[in-house]
Design a protein around this nucleic acid. Structure first.
Length: 494
RNA sequence: GGCGCGGUACCCAAGUGGUAAGGGAGAGGUCUGCAAAACCUUUAUGCGUCGGUUCGAUUCCGACCCGCGCCUCCA
């Protein structure tokens, strides 16, 4: 069964087939590195990550490129405010972005930077000018002539026909032939970062970098272009206009857009007080795995209401999955295999893949895995799982985690890094008690814990439950949960 | 105003022209020295409201109400 994806261009769900056999070339609009990434940014990046992972699981080789916008108005303004160069300013936020992405298990794409492709962008503009698709304004800026691209608006389904004849030109836009013409290149201004190029001194407009870098990395036509829903217009529309009018070829074949999320039922905004960076959430004591899980629990085209209650629920759900894996890995099973468990495992994989094939229906894929967990746990309780059933069940779980990436418990070390970062930034006051506790549980080394567990075992062998309970309480205090089962003692971090 | 999306149990959230996945939470129970984990039972005759089509609609159509998005370099 083939993957079916919603394509913004056609407004329909279509079967996905790469242009070249077995190779997917995809490009995602990445962050403008002027601040720490917020949870909304990461919803989009996680959605694209899921798609990337699913392409790979489906057997494709994938070339996945993401841009870093490291020059724009905000960056120039903030760098000037801080009295540092644009490069100095963006370096720390690009680093933060990479760290944050790793924290929620986003597989790294190839990153390309706007400022490292300035000559190519200038070259692109001059080719547009040669073809009379762009023009130079009096101040040295360059604009794309929208009237030259009749298909303008085809992605966002906007009709500009009435506006293309220049009848209603804003008085402010004195330099432009038509109000809708967009800037390709902005002429240098005093005290602003600029680059000397054959088309003059200045800096690129926002849309240019994505056309230039995507084509450079992936070719004039490639498979899929992704981003947040707000980018449909004008950003992606403009990319299409400048790219297709220049090459005469279709630009991206699939357009993939993730819907915005709500935070506590409202649009996220700084003024509403519901604006959170990823680091803010970790400082509040939430695990990266909970955040990732919550972000993946609603299909990417639906509005996701990101709430703290939801974060807690996500944490419990992840714990349930981790407990299940631990139980399978650590248990003793009778020899043999059962047909029921064998088929349960394979049906679960089929159901997950069918769900993901259906425009990445992550909620349904999660439903499938939980169904398997429940049935397996029930079988477990009645010795219905045999030795040879374990591997297929674990394999199904692994298949799930290749996409969702929440099972491995490395939350402790990750949270510790955020803790250290906040301390280094002098933000101790933002560190919650919950984060302190979480760090504590990660502070115990495995060896220390195993030592205590061994003592517990000895005490229990002597039927000294009192001593055993004291040890268990000590470990609980340190954030370690101990479980006594018929197969022995198991432990995990809270 | 133009274009588009959604309203499903206490919360989150799938889904289908034939009678409601899954997760969380609550209640009761099983297991257990006690915990924890796990399992079982239970919680929507109901899927925004009102009409229509149909043997039958939550699912299709229409109207209305509510929420949300884009149309302003915010993912």
């Amino acid at each position: 069964m083939a993957l079916r994806l919603y394509n913004t261009m056609s407004s329909r769900i279509e079967e996905f087939h790469p242009l070249r056999d077995n190779e997917v070339r995809m490009y995602a609009c990445g962050p403008t590195v002027y601040d720490y990434g917020h949870i909304g940014n990461f919803r989009t990046f996680v959605a694209v990550d899921l798609l990337y992972r699913y392409f790979r699981q489906s057997g494709y080789g994938v070339r996945y490129v993401m841009n870093i916008t490291d020059v724009d108005d905000k960056i120039i303004r903030n760098a000037a405010r801080d009295g540092v160069s644009v490069q100095q300013y963006t370096a720390r936020y690009e680093k933060a972005f990479v760290e944050d992405a790793a924290m929620i298990n986003i597989e790294p794409p190839k990153l390309v930077r706007a400022t490292e492709n300035i000559p190519q962008m200038a070259e692109f503009v001059s080719r547009l000018v040669e073809k009379r698709l762009a023009y130079r304004a009096d101040d040295g800026s360059y604009y794309f002539r929208i009237a030259k691209f009749p298909e303008y608006g085809k992605l966002s389904k906007k009709d500009f026909k009435g506006m293309l004849d220049g009848a209603r030109v804003d008085v402010d836009e004195y330099d432009k032939d038509s109000a809708r013409d967009f800037a390709l290149w902005k002429a240098a201004k005093p005290d602003e970062a600029s680059w000397d190029t054959p088309i003059g001194a200045g800096r690129p407009g926002w849309h240019l970098e994505c056309s230039v870098m995507s084509m450079q990395e992936l070719g004039e036509s490639f498979d899929l272009h992704a981003g947040g829903e707000d980018l449909v217009f004008p950003h992606h529309e403009n990319e299409i206009a400048q790219s297709e009018s220049l090459t005469g070829k279709p630009f991206a074949h699939f357009w993939f857009h993730a819907r915005f999320l709500l935070v506590e039922g409202e649009k996220m905004s700084k003024s509403s007080g519901n604006f959170f960076t990823l680091r803010d959430l970790v400082l509040k004591g939430h695990k990266p795995s909970s955040i990732r899980y919550l972000l993946t629990s609603v299909p990417y085209r639906n509005q996701l209401n990101f709430t703290f209650d939801g974060l807690k629920q996500a944490a419990v759900s992840v714990e349930r999955l981790r407990n299940f894996r631990l139980r399978l890995s650590a248990g003793n099973f009778p020899a043999g295999a059962t047909p029921e468990m064998q088929s349960l495992a394979s049906e679960t994989v089929d159901r997950m893949r069918a769900a993901l094939d259906d425009d990445l229906n992550t909620a349904q894929a999660q439903g499938a895995i939980f169904e398997m967990v429940r049935q397996s746990n029930a079988a477990f309780d009645t010795d219905g799982i045999k030795q040879d059933d374990v591997a297929p069940l674990l394999a199904a779980l692994a298949k799930f985690d290749e996409i969702f990436a929440v099972l491995d418990d490395d939350d402790g070390p990750k949270m510790k890094r955020v803790f250290e970062w906040a301390s280094g930034e002098g933000r101790e006051k933002d560190i919650s008690n919950e984060l302190h506790e979480a760090i504590q549980s990660g502070a115990q080394s495995d060896a220390d814990i195993e030592e205590k567990i061994a003592q517990m075992k000895a005490a229990r062998a002597a039927r000294d439950f009192k001593a055993s309970d004291v040890l268990r309480a000590e470990l609980a205090e340190a954030g370690i949960i101990v479980e006594i089962t018929k197969d022995g003692i198991r432990w995990r971090r809270k």
